[in-house]
C-alpha cells in the first residue's frame, strides 16, 4: 500500500502547547524528593490511568516528563513525585503554592486496570519507582472490592531515601495489604530489613495464576526482579513493567524515548512483559 494511503486524515493539532495549571501544595518526601499537588484550570480532571506521565514545563527553564503519583480515583488535583536532578527540577523545587506551571498530557500507555480486576496485585517498586506505582496502589485501595490481595515489595538504597512515610505506615497496618520493605544499606537507626529488592520475592505468599505483577525501578533492577519472579513461577503474561526513557515530546514524534521500534511515550511506559521480549534494547 502506498504511504499516503496509510494516513488516516485527521485535523492537525497544536501538540506542544501546555495547559497552565496551578501548584496547590508542595511536600518534601525526603532530602531529594518532593510531592507536588497540581490543579488544572477549573479543577478539571486529568483523566489518567495509573502509570501514565505528564510533561511539566516552566517557561524559560524547560519541559520534562514526570510520572503521575496520584490515583485517578482521587479527583480535583493530581500529584507528581519529583526528584531534584536537573535544570527543571531545581526550579520546580523553588516554586510556591499558587505558582503556575505548564502541563501537557497525560501521555503514554499506563496500567490497564480492567485487566487487573479480580486478580491479586503484586507491586515491585525500586527507589522512585514507587512514585508511579503509588497511583496503582491507591487505585486498588480505593476500589478494594474489584481486586484480590495487594502485595507491595518496596526497595530503596537507604532508609533516608524511603518515600511516603505516612502512607507506608498505613499500608503496613492495613490487613488487606501485604507490605514488604527493604533497603540496600540501612543507617544505624534502621530496624527493618536490609538487602536488595529481589531478596523480598522468594518469601512472598503468591497464588500463581491469580497474581499480576507490575515492576518499576531503576534500569539495573528489571533483569534481576524478572529472574526472581520467574523463579517463583509467575508467567510472562502476568508481568508488567514500567520503563524509564527520555520522553521529550510525549506524542511519538521527537524520537528520544525509542526502544528499538517502540516509542515509550506511546506504547509504554507500562509494557506487558511478553511485548518487551522482542525489544532487545528494553531491559
Amino acid at each position: 500500500m502506498k504511504l499516503n494511503e496509510l494516513i488516516q486524515p485527521q485535523e492537525p493539532r497544536d501538540l506542544y502547547l501546555p495547559t497552565m495549571a496551578t501548584l496547590r501544595d508542595i511536600k518534601p518526601l525526603n532530602a531529594l524528593e518532593t510531592l507536588y499537588t497540581v490543579e488544572l484550570p477549573g479543577g478539571a480532571d486529568l483523566g489518567h490511568q495509573p502509570g501514565q506521565f505528564v510533561e511539566v514545563s516552566l517557561f524559560g527553564v524547560g519541559e520534562a516528563p514526570f510520572s503521575i503519583s496520584s490515583s485517578p480515583t482521587r479527583k480535583g488535583t493530581f500529584e507528581l513525585g519529583i526528584r531534584k536532578v536537573g535544570l527543571l527540577t531545581e526550579k520546580l523545587a523553588a516554586l510556591k503554592p499558587g505558582d503556575k506551571l505548564g502541563i501537557r498530557g497525560p501521555f503514554g500507555h499506563g496500567i490497564d486496570v480492567e485487566r487487573f480486576k479480580g486478580k491479586d496485585v503484586l507491586v515491585v517498586a525500586g527507589g522512585i519507582g514507587l512514585v508511579p506505582m503509588r497511583s496503582l496502589i491507591n487505585f486498588v485501595l480505593d476500589r478494594r472490592d474489584d481486586f484480590g490481595r495487594l502485595i507491595i515489595c518496596y526497595g530503596s538504597r537507604s532508609d533516608e531515601e524511603l518515600l511516603f512515610t505516612e502512607e507506608r505506615e498505613a499500608w503496613k497496618k492495613d490487613p488487606g495489604v501485604d507490605f514488604h520493605v527493604t533497603v540496600d544499606r540501612g543507617s544505624p537507626a534502621w530496624a527493618g530489613r536490609t538487602g536488595v529488592i529481589t531478596t523480598l520475592i522468594p518469601g512472598l505468599e503468591l497464588e500463581l495464576g491469580k497474581t499480576v505483577c507490575c515492576v518499576c525501578g531503576p534500569p539495573v533492577m528489571y533483569r534481576f526482579v524478572l529472574l526472581a519472579l520467574k523463579s517463583r513461577g509467575l508467567s510472562d503474561e502476568s508481568i508488567y513493567m514500567s520503563l524509564e526513557r527520555r520522553m521529550k515530546c510525549g506524542v511519538g514524534k521527537c524520537g528520544h524515548c525509542q526502544i528499538n521500534h517502540s516509542y515509550v511515550c506511546q506504547d509504554g511506559p507500562v509494557y506487558h512483559y511478553p511485548d518487551l521480549k522482542s525489544l532487545e534494547e528494553a531491559l
Partner: peptide, 8 residues
C-alpha cells in the same frame, strides 16, 4: 500525520 497529527 499518524497517531497525533502535528499542526506545525
Amino acid at each position: 500525520s499518524q497517531g497525533q497529527p502535528e499542526k506545525n
